[in-house]
Simulated assay, not measured.
Amino acid sequence: MTEVPLFPLGTVLFPGGRLPLQIFEVRYLDMVGHCHREGLPFGVVSLIHGGEVRKAGDEDQAPEIFQNIGTMARISSWEAPQPGLMRIDCVGEQRFKVLGQRKLKHGLWVGDVERLEADQTVTVPDDLVHVAQQLERLIQHLQARVISPEQFPIATPFALDDCGWVANRWSELLPLPPAMKQNLLALDSPLMRLELIADFLEQV
């Protein structure tokens, strides 16, 4: 078990995924500054109930309730363009399970977490190669639009022959409900994750 700061968000971060964030709340400015200085990750968990931003003095705001499976986020770039504002880019690392959590006085959540096994590298089977090929075409389309590296939604390096990588990238890009994305993240089998993505792509 490890105690880590938690960042509840209205999104699901997958291993290998890119997550740009704009930080302005005091509880997260301090946490992100510490993680950046020490080279430490923080945990991203998906909100079930409540908002991402807490307003000072708003006692009627819905309490934050979040999923117990999340992903470690490591800061890959950081800037502070003005006092009280940080812009960071993060990359998703290992999945974890929250075994217990507590809220500190200034509103930051910390959790006792157990890191989950990383996805095994599983080659995309022949019957699902078309899913990887569709993703490759989408990447080429985005690259052709001359999107700057800072705006590109997919972190490098690409691994189009790996079930987990392909499934995770589709999970981020497709307009899936947050609950469905969370269910995909919770699956231990990258092959099963890719099979479910293939079923969804066939439907749309």
Rank of each mutant, 00 (worst) to 15 (best):
F14I: 04
V146P: 00
V53G: 05
E117Y: 02
T71A: 06
G164L: 11
L6G: 00
M72K: 11
G16H: 12
D60S: 15
D126N: 13
P177V: 12
S189Q: 05
E136P: 00
Q140C: 07
R137G: 10
V4F: 01
D188G: 15
D112Y: 10
D126W: 02
H49S: 13
R54H: 00
A179L: 15
E52N: 01
Y28P: 09
R169S: 13
V166Q: 01
H106L: 12
A56E: 13
G57Y: 06
V53K: 08
L104T: 04
A144L: 05
T156W: 10
M86S: 05
A167D: 07
E64W: 02
L85V: 11
P63W: 10
L191R: 04
W170K: 02
T156E: 15
K97M: 13
K105H: 12
E79H: 05
K97T: 13
R102Q: 11
V122D: 07
A159T: 06
Q101K: 15
P190W: 12
L13Q: 00
K55E: 14
G17V: 03
F158C: 01
D188H: 12
V110Y: 11
L108M: 15
L185D: 04
M86G: 00
R37N: 08
A167G: 06
P177S: 07
L47W: 07
C90G: 03
T123Y: 06
L9P: 08
E25F: 04
W170R: 03
K55S: 07
P178W: 10
Q203Y: 10
